[in-house]
Design a protein around this nucleic acid. Structure first.
Lengths: 218, 218
DNA sequence: CAGTATTGTGAACAATCGCTCAGCTCTCTG
DNA sequence: CAGAGAGCTGAGCGATTGTTCACAATACTG
């Protein structure tokens, strides 16, 4: 990257441990405040107050409000990206286990930020730099899943790319719903059904129908 | 409901057609402004400006900003709820058509409000009255789909309730994504894949597996 | 057409926002 | 312990927000 956005650079870099600690406290507070109030109502004063730091200190390490959000999102993204992709078994009959691992991974990824990521993306004016990072992250994730599907013997779908995009989004959204609001239905039941849906979808095309009597186009 | 929220009642009711028209213009403008700017940045002045009405007029018919959002959401909800549920054919082999009708219905329901509903629910502080209506709407929709699945001969799932909740949410979210952002993948392709996933899920349990060698509970 | 109720106007207010800056406290160095 | 620089404070600035209110414009009534 040739040049980072100037408006995301801090006034001064921390040189003592004390400062580094303050910076971290501010960031943690921002995560909580944004998650609780949303971005617009999550004011910088509230963030400073929660961090038990004066508003001036906040603006020593973050040039503006958007910079707080930018760093939070970038951290969240960098932490993800599915490190255990290689350790999954890709033997016949293991598809359900593989899918379940995908779902569990999504759960882990969502646990620390109940609303954050989603709210922020919808609400705030995010710098192009961060938007690109998010987009890149999504693409990488879809590509990973696509490769996984391609290597798995039980997967039979028309188009791997579309299938990967569909299930990544579906798993992510359902997981988000699962984590955000306590449901009437038990979590395990819902997870089982989600796993079933994806598994049946991916393996369902196996014995291909020889002819389609009436194509759905209309 | 014994008593509506006082803070959602207008100052005065319109008695001339002129006033009714103004009220409608304000509401339409609010829908567009909120959808474009989000709730926080969609200021009342912007709404009044777009409606070609002074800010004072706005506050004659809506006691505050939240009342605008409340009425928009309630209208959106009352308009929905799937009127064509009875006209679907429930003969063997028609499951894909039924699912596709579900998806198409979701598309229609989302067409007029590109972001509105989703953004609003996440962002704003919504009165309990409106939250209840939204909740009620979701429950009705899930119940309708559950009944539909129950009556369809090709549907074989463990739990109809969970399945209905899962597919309603999944279809709704994927449709929203489909409408909101122009994809790299063609819309038809994505729709076909979504229909396939749900169809295979619902019919996949048909020839029940006699025994499950390793239950997934962990 | 005069009189009255209804509707529409927009400058201005109080509250709150993101953010600054002059000056304080703390830590490091010798 | 004294000087210097790094870290921290918080009252307050300008801008913007949701909202009000005194008044003008318009529509109904007799």
């Amino acid at each position: 990257m040739p040049s980072a956005d100037r408006r995301l650079q801090p006034r001064r870099k921390p040189r003592q441990v004390r400062a580094e600690l303050t910076r971290e406290r501010i960031l943690t507070a921002a995560a909580h405040v944004f998650a609780e109030y949303g971005y617009a109502a999550g004011t910088t004063n509230r963030v400073a107050e929660r961090a038990r730091v004066s508003i001036g200190s906040l603006y020593q390490y973050f040039p503006n409000k958007d910079a707080l959000l930018a760093e939070l999102l970038l951290r969240h993204i960098d932490r993800g990206t599915w490190p255990q992709a290689d350790r999954l078994e890709l033997t016949p009959g293991s598809l359900e286990k593989t899918v379940r691992a995908l779902v569990r991974d999504a759960v882990d990824h969502h646990r620390d930020d109940p609303h954050l990521l989603r709210i922020m993306i919808e609400e705030a004016t995010i710098s192009q730099e961060v938007l690109d990072a998010i987009d890149r992250h999504g693409r990488v994730r879809v590509a990973q899943v696509r490769d996984l599907l391609a290597r798995h013997p039980d997967v039979h779908v028309r188009d791997l790319g579309t299938a990967a995009e569909l299930i990544v989004f579906t798993v992510e959204m359902n997981t988000h719903k699962l984590m955000a609001a306590p449901q009437t239905i038990p979590v395990e039941t819902f997870e089982n059904e989600l796993v079933d849906m994806v598994t049946r979808y991916l393996s369902g095309g196996g014995p291909q129908q020889p002819a389609d009597p009436s194509p759905p186009g209309g």
